Simulated assay, not measured.
Amino acid sequence: MKTLLEVLQSGTDYLARQGCDEARATMQHLMAHVLHCNRTALYSQFDRPIQEAELAPLRQLLKRRAAGEPLQHLLGSTEFFRREFLTDARALIPRPETEELVEMVLKKIPAHPVRVLDMGTGSGIIGITLALELRERAREVVLADISPQALDLALENAMRLGARVSTVQTDLFENIPLEKAAPRPEEAEPPGSATEEEEQGAVHDMRFDVIVANLPYIADGEKLDPEVMRDPHTALFGGPNGWEIIERFLARARDYLNENGFIALEIGYDQAATVTQIMDGYGYNYIEVLKDMSGIARFPFGYR
């Protein structure tokens, strides 16, 4: 019977031979997952014998990882902004750069309560994180996506983490009206005391103070790592040049902003000049593109 250390080393060697990046860290994650402990706890159990009942699921996970299945899908979750989010093939795996976007957005949100729209929400990481970080300052947070499967995953994450959000299935702004009728009051006013419009329900503005979007920005046909291709293609490819969906978004997003509201985007490494030109053409003000930790102009902001 092999010890934990022996299994860790043999699994690491196997993954390395299969060309997996960060083979040892990956093996640590898989072992911690199977043994129901954290990675740190492995170091205090190196001499522990590994039972066959524990080896069988570990072997299956190793085969799937060697075949290119993302580690996050195997574990069923990933960490984002110090929280564990469910991850699977229904939505894009969160990238580290997106955490930087959330930090930047939080710094720019005013002190008063705000309405937030997370367009192209995927697993819900941006909108849910903003809802949890803003707390009482989040007047409303809406998660929007074209994929019903992604929205199901986002709702699962919201319920697990206790985030107060709503969802809408939509192709960009197609199913998001600029105005909506308020619910009718439970008790009607005396006859003749209300206008016709009030009888039909007051109309509420549906504009937002903050719209954040991590939309597809990879050019159609661009060759990607096989592991990345496990993500939904609708969450990856943004058109012949990569920025076409972003342009469709920018064409309408400004109309959905309150005065002094802003949009924030995550874009490709070489798209800053094109995207800022598009933003300027659609009338956004105070446009700036902030850099990620690698120095890449990655995050355009624009105001109404």
Rank of each mutant, 00 (worst) to 15 (best):
K223H: 07
T195K: 13
R65C: 08
S294D: 11
N241F: 09
L74Q: 03
R83S: 01
N258H: 11
E186L: 14
Y256D: 00
Q149R: 07
S193N: 04
L62P: 00
R64E: 14
T26Y: 03
M279G: 01
V228D: 08
A182V: 12
D152S: 12
A202C: 14
P216V: 03
A219G: 15
A25P: 01
Q271H: 04
L257D: 00
T98E: 08
A67E: 12
R207V: 10
N241A: 13
L15I: 05
R64T: 07
N38R: 13
Q60D: 15
E100S: 10
M293P: 00
N260C: 11
A194L: 13
M206E: 05
F80S: 06
A202H: 12
D47H: 14
Q45S: 08
A158S: 08
R248K: 14
F262M: 05
G261L: 08
R252S: 05
D231S: 02
I246R: 02
E198R: 15
Q45G: 05
P216S: 10
T26P: 03
V116P: 01
L106G: 06
S10L: 10
Q72R: 07
P183R: 10
E22R: 14
T234R: 02
P148D: 08
L75H: 01
F80P: 04
H36E: 15
V7Y: 04
A297P: 02
N157A: 03
P110G: 01
V165K: 01
L153P: 00
E54S: 09
F173L: 02
G242E: 05
L8S: 00
E196F: 14
G127P: 01
L224R: 09
C20W: 07
G302I: 05
A32R: 04
R230V: 04
R298Y: 11
Y303A: 01
Q200E: 15
L117Y: 00
V34K: 06
T40R: 10
V114L: 11
A273P: 06
T87M: 03
V102S: 08
E196N: 11
D21C: 11
D152R: 07
L161D: 03
L155T: 04
R230I: 06
L178K: 15
D205H: 11
M159I: 13
K63E: 15
V102I: 15
D292E: 08
Q51N: 11
V34F: 10
V275A: 00
G242A: 14
A16S: 14
T167Q: 09
E133W: 11
M279K: 02
I126M: 05
M159H: 15
G268T: 04
A272V: 02
Q9G: 03
P226G: 11
P190G: 03
S123F: 02
D152I: 03
I126Q: 02
I109Y: 09
G122H: 03
G76N: 07
D171W: 09
G295E: 11
D171K: 09
G302E: 00
A150L: 09
K63T: 14
R298P: 09
R160N: 12
E156G: 04
V142L: 08
